[in-house]
């Protein structure tokens, strides 16, 4: 297997990174180990758990299933970018109030996913919201508290 690296320029959370990466490295590996953004968690590394969800051009994507070299021309937003920009302050608070986390491993993935889901459809129905959140795995909460948290943000926002 070739270990040769290729140059790639990535835009992560509005910052430009000029990197040398192996073509086989996933985006998750690169944002964690090269950009130092370890809020993106790697759980299953096979696209099941959703802990590694990031936004690629605004779409929620499993970053373990996309190679960093595929993201050359894309805008990447990780949990750090969303949190620093204040975009998900209400979601973070709601997760805290409704006990939407315990160990916290899945939380960044859920927050990124939930922010994208509400962005796509701010008045999403309960059923569609549950379906959308079932994309990610949480082994602590039993999901209900996560659903309650995201619902509460939806209800605040769509009431305005």
């Amino acid at each position: 297997m070739s270990r040769a690296t290729v140059p790639v320029t990535l835009e992560v959370n509005g910052e430009t990174w000029d990197l040398e990466v192996e073509p086989r490295w996933s985006l998750a590996e690169v944002v964690r180990s090269r950009c130092g953004l370890t809020g993106t968690h790697l759980g299953c590394e096979q696209g099941i758990c959703g802990s590694c969800t990031v936004l690629v051009d605004g779409d929620p994507v499993r970053s373990c299933l996309i190679y960093a070299v595929q993201c050359r021309d894309s805008r990447i937003t990780t949990i750090e970018g969303l949190a620093a920009g204040g975009d998900i302050a209400d979601l973070m608070e709601a997760f805290s109030i409704h006990h939407g986390l315990q160990c916290g491993f899945c939380t960044p993935g859920f927050l990124v996913l939930a922010s994208a889901v509400l962005e796509r459809d701010p008045s999403i129905s309960d059923g569609d919201l549950e379906e959308a959140l079932s994309s990610n795995l949480c082994r602590c909460t039993g999901y209900y508290s996560i659903i309650k948290a995201v619902r509460s943000v939806r209800d605040q926002t769509s009431a305005c």
């Binding site: 969800t53 996913l113 959308a132 994309s135």
Partner: peptide, 12 residues
């Protein structure tokens, strides 16, 4: 289509 995977899978 609604039965295919989850939103992040369907987007990609």
């Amino acid at each position: 289509g609604r039965q295919v995977g989850h939103l992040p899978i369907r987007l990609r």
